[in-house]
Design a protein around this nucleic acid. Structure first.
Lengths: 228, 228
DNA sequence: ATTCATATTTATCGATCGTTAAAAACGATA
DNA sequence: TATCGTTTTTAACGATCGATAAATATGAAT
């Protein structure tokens, strides 16, 4: 008690190095993985730290050891998931321009659906939280979701130069993104309406058919147009 | 005290008549109105009985006097809102067939947007809760939302007989509904992306332009086709 | 004025929420 | 083995949730 242990002077000790052990990264990863799953099943305000703790098989206060708040954790998950999509999206355009509109669009959608099948949570997280941010206290990563949308449009315009007006291109890409995100992020709903199973081949085929059906006419027009 | 008042026989008293006073209906209406607003601002599990009580300027337990559970109240709100939309939707088709695809679609969308401006909460409630019902405990009125979607498709096919395959018509109507509900139910999101104000004339014009741009080509095809 | 069913308020229940503090377990260094 | 920083667990906080029970207010019929 009292104080004055030894010299009293140094005091700094080992605070200059974080000493991040390997276990630290492992647990952090486990939490992020579990959080991605929970945030893909429940909208932000319905998902809970305790659910995530249970999914990660750790006690929930440990989450606050690695992430200061629930909002910060959500933003990290959102950042990863949208970044992953962004990178993949760029690759889907490779070698498309030579194929023409029909085959090009078809191949793009095939690649897109492949990704969606392997990473369904990305779409769920976006659709679950895209709508909720109105009137209510804004959702933590809201800006990221909007940026994500804007970036996919930008990628498209870079990869496939079209000859239409800016508004035409904007309408086309926004429609494609809206339909795609809805059909994949709310697949239970749409599959239910169509009398199909959400993850089935049949439903995926319908999504592809439907996207091509709606997008192709205008895409042809913008591609084949007066050239440029 | 004791008992045996007069004959003792009747006992039933006034239980055969509910005696619903006028005030009862008034309060019930006030609760439904407030609930419609709150459920248009927050998804089901985020909205609370206490919010609704505050919006209706009553103490929240009174809500449980008129509605057994939060779920029952939500279902009632959903029923009213979708019914209102359903009835309006039928009227929007009046006199369209004579106009041809361009003018007909334009007028339909005008009527549709008029309704959306006057009843924005319908779209909010649907979009807010359409996605959330996956993995999670189902949302109370989920079936109603799906039925609502199916009914609008049915109305369309009744009003505008098309000459395409069943799948083509299904893809077209589903796309229209999906785009429309998203643009109006998540207007803050989409307007934000486009750099517009959610309720502005400019944004509404964009929605109309965009719907026509995407729907018209296939509509023309299905209308003008091999007739019959 | 009294009675009594209806309508509304007050108080409270058990459950869950995000977060914090303190205790305990762990693991490498001395 | 003892020490000490890091990681994990345990316990608890104040707040909010939907729902219930009991107390009170209201208002028409006797």
């Amino acid at each position: 008690m009292m104080s004055s242990p030894k010299t009293e002077a140094p005091r700094k000790r080992a605070s200059f190095q974080k000493k991040e052990g390997p276990q630290k990264q492992l647990t952090r990863e486990k939490i992020l993985e579990a959080a991605t799953q929970v945030f893909a099943d429940y909208p932000y305000y319905t998902a809970s730290i305790r659910m995530i703790g249970k999914a990660a098989k750790i006690d929930h206060p440990l989450i606050n050891y690695y992430f200061p708040t629930k909002a910060a954790l959500f933003e990290e998950v959102l950042k990863r998931v949208t970044e992953q999509y962004y990178v993949a999206n760029i690759s889907w355009f490779e070698g498309l321009r030579e194929l023409g509109p029909e085959k090009g669009l078809s191949l793009y959608i095939d690649r897109f659906l492949d990704f969606a099948l392997q990473h369904p949570r990305a779409f769920r997280i976006i659709t679950l939280n895209l709508v909720s941010a109105e009137e209510t206290e804004i959702i933590p990563g809201y800006q990221q979701i909007q940026d994500f949308f804007a970036r996919t449009t930008h990628t498209f315009r870079q990869a496939i130069p079209l000859s239409g007006s800016k508004q035409d291109i904007e309408m086309l890409t926004t429609s494609f993104n809206t339909l795609a995100i809805n059909y994949l992020g709310a697949s239970t709903y749409y599959a239910g309406i169509l009398g199909m199973e959400p993850g089935s081949r049949q439903y995926m085929q319908w999504v592809k058919d439907s996207l091509i059906y709606m997008i192709l006419p205008r895409l042809k027009q913008l591609l084949g147009g007066t050239a440029q």
